[in-house]
Simulated scan of single mutants.
Amino acid sequence: MKISHYFEFEDHVTGGIRESVVHQRKMLDGLDLRYTTEPTLEADVFHCNLMGPRSVWYAKRARDRGIPVVANTHVTAEDFGDSFRFTNALSKPLRPYLERAYGLADALVCPSAYNRRLIDTYADAPTTVISNGVDREKLEGFESLEAEYRERYDLESPTVFLVGHVIKRKGLETFVELARRLPDLDFAWFGPLDLSLKGRETTRLIEESPDNCTFTGYVDDIRGAYAAGDIFCFPTHEENEGIALLEAMTAGKPLLVRDIETFSWLEDGEDCLKVADSGVDGFVDALERLTDSTLRDRLGTNAADRSEAFSLSSVANQYQSLYEEVA
C-alpha cells in the first residue's frame, strides 16, 4: 500500500500541527507502508493534514478516481480565533470552507473526542479518534538540561511553565495575571513570540507582564523547557488535544488545566488539577496547593503513567488499521 501523505504549507506552518505530522511520519516509518510526502494521485490513499486549496483540489480528483481520502481535522473555526493577527476576522468564513473541505474525505481523523464532537457538526464523513501522540524518544535525557536552562532564564523552583506559541487563546491573559498575583513564583512560557503576527492586545499583555514572567521565545532544545519547568500550567480556552500537555505528562510534570471539555479525560486530583472557567482565583488557589512538592510528585507520577497510552508505538497501529479500512 502506498500513501500520499501531504502537508500543505509545510514550510510555513509550525506548532502542534507540524508536530503531529512529524509524529505521523515517524509512525509510518515503523509500519509496513510506503509513503510519499508529495501530493499525488498515484497512490492507494490520499492523506492530507491541512485542507488548504491545493489539498482540496487533489481530494476532489482523488474521489473522482476512486482513491480514498483521509484528512486530519487539526483546524476548526473554534480554535482558530484569538491566535494570530486577523484570525478572529477569518474564523467566521473559515467554518463553511472547512465544512466543504472536510466533506470531501472518506475518513476524518480527529485528535480527541472533543474535536470529534465538533467535527460531527461540520461534515457527514466518518470520523475516528486518533491521538496526535507523544514522541517519548524526543524527550529522552531532558533532566540533564535543568541547570543550564534554569540559569539561562534565571528560574527558581518551583517554576510555573507553558510550552507552545504565545497566543491569547491558550490563556495568555490568565498566565500573565497569575504571575502578577504570585510574585514569589517564577513563570516561564517557552515558545515562539512572533510579535509581528500578534494582535495589539496580545502584544500589550506580553510587554506589560511582570518581572517574574519570562517569555523565552524560540528555544533550540525543547527538552530544556521540561527540565526547567515544575508545574505545567495550561489555562487554554480552546484546544483540540494539546501535544505539549502530553509531553509534560511524559516528563512527569504535574498539570494545572482549565476545566474545558477537551480535558474531560483527565482526572482532577489524580493526574492533574482542574480549575473551573471562572477567572483567575481558582488558578491562584491551585498553584498555592502545588507549591507542596509531595502533591506535585504524586500528580506528576500519575500523569507519566497515563501518558504511556499516547506513545507513538501505541498510536501507530490505529493509522494502519484506518488505511486498510478505507483502501
Rank of each mutant, 00 (worst) to 15 (best):
V160M: 09
L104N: 06
G81C: 09
S307N: 10
A113C: 05
Q24D: 13
A276L: 06
F80K: 01
T76Y: 00
D82K: 12
S83N: 14
T203V: 13
S144V: 11
T128W: 00
L245F: 09
E148W: 00
V134F: 07
S131R: 04
D124T: 10
L197Q: 11
F263L: 09
D259C: 03
P39M: 08
I206G: 06
N317K: 04
L256C: 10
A123I: 04
F84H: 06
H5M: 13
L31Q: 05
Y319V: 07
R61C: 07
T128F: 05
L287T: 07
A123Y: 08
Y218P: 11
R34S: 15
I260R: 04
D135E: 05
T87Q: 12
N302W: 00
V257I: 15
L108D: 14
I130M: 06
I130K: 04
G199Y: 02
R34E: 15
L195P: 12
P93Q: 02
A303T: 10
D285W: 01
R289S: 15
A101E: 12
M1Y: 04
S293W: 00
R65K: 13
R136K: 11
D268H: 06
F86I: 07
E10D: 15
S313N: 11
T159K: 04
L108W: 11
F84A: 08
V21H: 04
R169C: 09
T291A: 02
E207T: 12
A228Q: 08
L205Y: 13
R18S: 14
V315I: 15
I67S: 06
S264P: 01
T236F: 01
N72M: 06
V275S: 03
G16I: 02
A105L: 09
A147Y: 00
H47R: 03
N132K: 01
A276K: 10
A244H: 03
V70F: 00
L94F: 02
L145S: 12
E78P: 02
D124K: 05
V56Y: 03
H74S: 09
L195G: 04
V70P: 09
P39V: 09
M27P: 13
Y114D: 07
G133F: 06
Y149S: 12
A123F: 05
A101P: 14
E143M: 04
Y35N: 00
V21G: 05
I3W: 10
V22W: 03
K168A: 10
I17M: 07
R298V: 13
D277C: 02
F86A: 12
M1C: 02
S144H: 10
F142L: 05
A107T: 10
F86L: 13
D211M: 03
T128M: 06
D305M: 09
A59P: 13
E146V: 07
F310Y: 15
A43P: 06
E78L: 06
S20A: 14
H165S: 15
Y35T: 01
H165A: 15
Y6F: 15
W265R: 09
V13Q: 02
R65I: 02
F86Q: 08
L245W: 10
F86M: 08
E201I: 03
T127G: 03
F283L: 09
T291M: 08
E238P: 04
E208G: 02
V22D: 15
T301H: 07
V280Y: 08
